[in-house]
Design a protein around this nucleic acid. Structure first.
Length: 646
DNA sequence: ACTTTATGCGTTTTT
DNA sequence: CGCATAAAGT
């Protein structure tokens, strides 16, 4: 079985898959069979007798990990299920669950999502007594904090770099950060960055724990290594201890520096791991030579990278085409026309993808596709789990799982009329920092602690919870679905009607989530995964795979994927490259890498769309120029066509 | 404590 | 413009 798998590899891939112990760097350019190679390496390790439990596979998304292990399982059997795999955050979470007490956390600490962090930062600002016009907003502060954490540098250094104009504010910002750290700790929550930082801290603090995991993970494989940041590489380096680490990546595809990723991690790998073997995969199996020519020509405008050139293995196809269209509506109509053409040629919807720099670039197209009854799936900016109504319901479940989750407490009881921030704080103090609704005494205490005027609204909810808990005690069954639907009937639907114009849609979302909970493991596990899989149906599995749909996606979310037909839209200056991303220093190399990623997603047909005007904030329109990424490609490599619409 | 009005401000990218 | 948060009014 495994022989069949490995036989299909080319010599370089084969060498990488079966390479012996020691550090190994696989420089895998786009479309060169990187995933297949990694799958084979895992399968080969297991097949040659390595205990699967001693393999750690770090990937960029949890979905990628699942898919790889699924393929490895097909080759060498169910034992691969014991491989530890997932994102850095996922794996760190798992390690911290077992060791959180060492750092003074409870083992059932909650993970603060972005909204939770936001509200804690707001609290911290209020505590320090800063705010107002001239002071940076919460989100800006959050990005400073995150930057410091992910790059492993001090907040002061970040401020010097990112906020140099206002040195007088630096002290106050640091004070806000101190308060934020304390608030998080008191509430027993970790934010995303804390998962990484605390794990590294744990290893530094307790060498015996580090030692345990070092001995456990005898083989470490890291995918998408070019997008690791300082804290992640520190995590890996301390676990690997110079030993059996395989890093796979492509510096051309480093597109997360804004999140602290540093492709020097991959550039410096050979010096950090002396004696590292380097294997380059350059044979591209994905795209036609015409598409690769464009990709190579584009990335050649960047410097300071490993020299690499994609070599085509496929036969010739059609030249990538640039479509000059009037505006984004004309762009959408041109795409609609082409979709129908490709369907006539025998392609399916799922053969096609539309890629763009920012979510909002695709709204016109979404409207037109919906109106034209074209099935499409969009990886949206906000996932269901981030919508207010789903978070409302989840806050109840969170509180049931963890009575000390103060954020969940505030969100949940804040739903009740007459309960504002003030009374909530008083309540929380009266309850002594815990609110256990699973027990009758706890529910009574909660009712007693709230202002008498609020009690009547709580009564029916309390009743629903009581029913759920009694059933659970009796049968051992967690019938969360029923709890949710009684909660909606008894209280929440009225709330939705009062506050939103589409209460039914929102109930549908909630029911969808309820189905997810029922199909999964325990409620506690589910809630952890919700926090770690923020924005994606793809991650959590809301998509019934195999549907024939066109995919609409940001380039970032298209990483690692491929389609026969790819449309890149809004290829304009200020949009792609994004004016914000280029920023003050004028460095456009990351945006160019992003463009390179977009181009190399296409297997056979690539269309690049360039509107000549765009809408302004006010609703008018203004002219806009074609992207530099098109201009800098030799014109002989591209067809240029003009759209027919308006 | 809740409702209304003013202002502001934006539209990167995500674990 | 349209949404979201802040300030002022009831």
């Amino acid at each position: 079985m495994i022989e069949n798998l490995i036989e299909k590899l080319n010599p370089e891939q084969h060498e990488a898959a079966v390479a012996g112990d020691g550090p190994l760097l696989i420089l895998a350019a786009a479309g060169t069979g990187k995933t297949q190679t990694l799958v084979c390496r895992v399968a080969h390790l297991v097949d040659s007798g390595v205990n699967p439990g001693s393999i750690l596979l770090l990937t960029f998304t949890n979905k990628a990990a699942r898919e790889m292990l699924e393929r490895a399982r097909a080759a060498v059997g169910p034992a691969v299920g014991d491989v530890w795999s997932g994102t850095f955050h996922h794996v760190c979470n798992r390690i911290l669950r077992a060791n959180a007490q060492v750092l003074g956390y409870r083992p059932n600490f909650t993970i603060a999502d972005k909204a939770d962090s936001r509200s804690l930062i707001a609290k911290a600002m209020a505590e320090v007594g800063v705010g107002g016009d001239k002071f940076p907003k919460r989100d800006v502060l959050a990005s400073f904090f995150g930057n410091a954490a992910n790059r492993g540098i001090s907040l002061e250094d970040v401020l010097e770099e990112k906020y140099p104009g206002h040195p007088s504010d630096h002290g106050a910002i640091v004070a806000v950060h101190d308060a934020y750290v304390r608030l998080k700790f008191d509430a027993g929550v970790m934010d995303f960055d804390d998962l990484l930082v605390n794990c590294v801290r744990l290893f530094e603090l307790k060498p015996e724990i580090l030692d345990y995991y070092r001995r456990k993970f005898r083989y470490i494989l890291v995918d998408e290594y070019q997008d690791t940041n300082t804290i992640q590489s520190r995590f890996v380096d301390s676990l690997a201890g110079g030993g059996n680490i395989t890093a796979v990546g492509d510096d051309f595809q480093c597109i997360y520096t804004w999140r602290g990723a540093d492709f020097r991690n991959i550039m410096d790998f050979p010096s950090r791991y002396p004696g590292a073997r380097i294997i380059k995969l350059e044979q591209n199996y994905r795209s036609t030579p015409e598409i690769l020519d464009v990709a190579n020509a584009s990335i050649a405008n960047n410097h300071d990278q490993f020299a690499k050139k994609l070599r085509a293995t496929r036969g010739h196809g059609s030249k990538p085409t640039v479509y000059r269209v009037y505006d984004s509506m004309a762009q959408s109509m041109e795409i609609l026309k082409q979709i129908r053409n490709y369907l006539d040629m025998g392609f399916t919807y799922s053969d096609m993808a539309v890629l763009y720099r920012s979510h909002f670039h695709s709204i016109d197209l979404q409207i037109l596709l919906a109106r034209s009854r074209i099935p499409f799936r969009i990886t949206s900016g906000m996932g269901v789990f981030e919508t207010a109504h789903v978070k409302d319901v989840l806050s109840l479940l969170r509180l049931l799982c963890d009575p000390q989750d103060s954020l969940a407490f505030e969100r949940f009881f804040g739903l009740l009329p007459k309960l504002g921030p003030q009374s909530l704080a008083k309540m929380w103090a009266k309850l002594g920092g815990a609110c256990d609704l699973t027990d009758a005494a706890g529910r009574a205490a909660a009712a007693a602690a709230m202002p008498p005027t609020a009690r009547s609204a709580f009564e029916p909810i309390s009743h629903a919870i009581a029913r759920y808990c009694e059933a659970k005690a009796k049968t051992g069954d967690e019938n969360v679905g029923e709890l949710i639907s009684t909660f909606i009937d008894n209280f929440y639907f009225a709330y939705l009607q009062k506050n939103f114009d589409n209460p039914e849609d929102r109930v549908d979302d909630i029911n969808e989530v309820a189905v997810q909970i029922r199909s999964g493991a325990s409620l506690a596990d589910f809630l952890q995964n919700v926090a770690l899989n923020t924005n994606s149906e793809a991650e959590v599995g809301l998509n019934e795979g195999g549907k024939d749909e066109i995919r609409l996606s940001t380039v970032h979310q298209a990483k690692g994927l491929e389609w026969p037909i790819v449309f890149i839209i809004c290829a304009n200056e200020d949009m792609f490259p994004s004016s914000r991303a280029i920023g003050d220093n004028g460095d456009d190399s990351e945006e160019r890498r992003l463009f390179y990623v977009a181009v190399t997603r296409a297997k056979s047909h690539l269309g690049i769309f360039v509107p000549s005007s765009r809408k302004t904030f006010e609703g008018g329109s203004m002219p806009c120029r074609p992207s530099r990424f098109i201009k800098e490609i030799p014109s002989s490599l591209l067809n240029v066509k003009f759209g027919a619409y308006r």
